[in-house]
Design a protein around this nucleic acid. Structure first.
Lengths: 235, 235
DNA sequence: ACTCCTGACCTGTATATACAGGCTTAATTG
DNA sequence: CAATTAAGCCTGTATATACAGGTCAGGAGT
């Protein structure tokens, strides 16, 4: 028949009218039955098209009332946080990981808090790894790991496997939380990233849970001048 | 019948097995017909459950082959970029916007590039607005606007309407691009944000398109010590 | 005048059915 | 023995149908 599936054509029918300004935020969209009459598709096809536009944030629906153009399409735009090693290789560059420290250690208070430990009586696994892009340091990965989740963490060869890959292998991921902020580099970070002390650093804090318990807390320090997060949001 | 819809129960059936480690990344999941036999649901219900888990990035499917647990559930985790004014009000705090500059001006080269202008022969609208949270400056919004998209931009009362709200009103949004990085504050930004010069700033650059043409390019400067982006990713 | 109820319309869910087309394995044919 | 074909599974799409439950307007009853 046609290149695109019917439900995609219905979605385009809607988004075209939103993009052109014919249907403005808050305006009522055709009902499912009206799509059946106007476009000659089945209600289930219209339902799928509208439902997918809801999950995409383009429309919002109220049972019994109707379907409406979402008020704030720009309210929540997604930005992707990815894997540094994969990012570097995707750019066609050379990635090298240098473990600076791999040890068992008592977690400082603010780290222990992420693991739900009141007083830090428990030793956690701790690794500091510097990731290089074409021999320039790009990220310092300061990670604390729950030994019960990854008991062999200290024996992993982190020049070949990233901590994230190892954790994914030993335990399925359940929940990830990110916090992104700008901070000034401290002395160690500045040295590892080969930049001036107090220079701006893009810090990503990543906490992961697996099987109901905290698995890992990582601070990913990026040289502000060499790193950026990108996101594109369409329609 | 039950509290949760059937297709959600099927999704839970799958994600429970992934979380527990019974089904590992790359492993084959039951086929739609097997779900019909095992769980006693219709194929369309199983299809919807699996399809939604694909769009969520949990599964991946190959027609003719089967459905599989996605290899890299942590590869791309979404982070939301929202509206500052709405964020502040959502926290139950007081938001105030102070326009520092609203003018028509020749865009500098790096801004003109975002609008696809070779040499900056065209005057753009330019606004600098400082957003306060409970009388503390949180964001400096430095925005350049395409006059053909928003011809009355200079007459808007930006103490009552945010530039983003005005742009949304005059033209539907088509595409948004974000770049997030950490930079050092320059003298102006430091003064407006009431912090030391060269202190770290979380900079979000947002470019928007509408009706096929660039509409706006905004640099959103945030005090590193007072601002962070948060994102949570489940299953 | 006010309350309650009913009917019309809406979304949400669930099923059975059908056909197209991708992939793999096994049987068939040259 | 090798190349081709057919069968059998898989996902992907599309439809007709059914029922539940939310929402609103207007009419019936008090």
């Amino acid at each position: 028949m046609s290149a695109q599936p019917l439900y995609e054509q219905v979605k385009s029918y809607v988004t075209d009218r939103i993009r052109s300004g014919a249907w403005r935020p808050g305006a009522r969209v055709l009902s499912e039955h009206e799509f059946v009459r106007v476009l000659g598709v089945s209600r289930m096809t219209a339902n799928r098209a509208l439902r997918e536009l809801v999950t995409a944030g383009v429309l919002s629906r109220v049972a019994g009332l109707g379907t409406f153009v979402a008020d704030l399409p720009a309210a929540a735009q997604p930005l992707e946080i990815r894997n540094v090693a994969a990012d570097i290789r995707d750019r066609g560059h050379f990635h090298r990981a240098v473990p600076v420290r791999v040890e068992a250690a008592l977690a400082p208070a603010e780290v222990a808090a992420h693991f739900g430990l009141g007083i830090s009586e428990l030793k956690l696994f701790h690794s500091i790894i510097v990731h290089f892009e074409n021999e320039r340091p790009l990220e310092v990965e300061d990670r604390w790991v729950n030994p019960t989740v990854a008991p062999h963490y200290l024996n992993v060869d982190f020049t070949r496997v990233t901590p994230h890959e190892h954790l994914m292998q030993v335990a399925p991921l359940e929940r990830v939380e990110h916090v992104v902020r700008a901070v000034a580099a401290d002395a160690d970070i500045a040295e590892w990233l080969d930049m001036a002390s107090t220079a701006p650093v893009l810090l990503i804090e990543r906490t992961t849970w697996t099987q109901g318990q905290p698995a890992s807390f990582a601070r990913l320090h990026h040289a502000g001048s060499r790193f950026e997060l990108r996101g594109v949001y369409d329609v």
